[in-house]
Simulated assay, not measured.
Amino acid sequence: MKIIECPRDAMQGREEFIDTAIKAAYINQLLEVGFDTVDFGSFVNPKAMPQMRDTAELLELLDLFHSKSKLLAIVANKRGAEDALHFEEIDYLGFPLSISETFQQRNTNKSIAEALEVVEDIQNLCEIKGKTVVTYLSMAFGNPYGEAFSVDIVAEFVEKLDALGIKIIALSDTIGVAEPKLIEKLFETNIQAYPEIEFGAHFHSRPEGIAEKIHAGLKGGCRRFDGAIKGFGGCPMAKDELVGNVATEVMIEVLEKEGHHLNLNMEEFGEAMKLAKFVFG
């Protein structure tokens, strides 16, 4: 079972800039917990994502010596990937590929066809550098634009990513609309069809819907889940402050009740929970 903690996703939409030293203190605390991966920052245009403009500086302040966690950074184009690959400390580059043409344009200012070309470029760069691409399939459970969506359409995208050699795909419920039956079916279908690909879940959810989404992912075979402490972050497009990220503390409770041993240091996690109150208010 892999738990990916996502402070980058929790922070990126906040209007007030969080001081780099505060970010570093928070992420260093997360690195003590024992998460498989920490999604810590992004190499994107600072005009598009001003909160993340200090990612390179932040990286220099992270204490990785005693941590077993790997680092993931989000990129939106080839240039961002090249910038991220200057840092040996980064293990994964994440790229948001959308099922929705509208959202792809809004999120990365590219068409889906252009975004797929970027995925191929990033994959080629990562193979040279010994890094791994994590492709997030945004709007993987539906979209608010009335655009076509089906399990078969998702399968077509997975097939294209498989052809490019992508080994980790995170099915993303960008606006919190995924129903448990659909979650279970999407994971079960794709995991059976592509056993060599690691499928993860990046859910956004109202608090009362978290447990059933995690249960559905488990039933479908998912063993990789993203979260953010206290559910901070989420998609601003949702226009609902309760549709944030899956709260990591709730996810941990659900998974442990199901008998999964997560090998997390819960004392350090408790300290991270306290620090989150200071960071996010």
Rank of each mutant, 00 (worst) to 15 (best):
I183E: 03
Y194R: 03
S138G: 13
Y194G: 11
Q123E: 15
P180K: 07
K185C: 06
Y145A: 06
Y136D: 05
A170V: 02
V134A: 07
G221C: 03
S150F: 07
G142I: 03
L171A: 02
F199V: 00
I122W: 08
L242G: 12
E117F: 12
E179R: 12
K185A: 04
G234R: 06
A163L: 06
L218H: 05
Y194A: 09
A211M: 07
F199R: 02
N124D: 14
E179V: 10
P195W: 01
D226Q: 05
A193G: 03
D173S: 07
E120N: 13
M139S: 02
L164C: 10
A238G: 09
L137D: 02
G217H: 03
G165D: 00
P180T: 02
T189P: 09
K219W: 06
L186A: 09
E241W: 13
E147Q: 09
P236K: 04
E147Y: 03
G146K: 04
Y194C: 09
D173G: 02
V133H: 07
E184L: 02
N124V: 15
K219L: 15
I210E: 11
E127T: 07
G146I: 03
I229L: 15
I229Y: 00
I210Q: 12
F141C: 06
K167N: 09
G220L: 07
C222N: 04
V119Q: 08
E188W: 12
L171V: 01
T135Q: 09
E184P: 10
I166P: 05
A216T: 00
F203M: 12
E117L: 15
E127L: 13
I128T: 12
K230C: 14
G221M: 05
V151P: 13
F187V: 02
G146L: 02
L164P: 11
Y136H: 10
I210F: 08
G165K: 09
D173W: 01
L125D: 03
I197L: 11
T174H: 11
R206F: 11
H204F: 04
P144W: 04
V151Q: 15
I169N: 03
C235D: 05
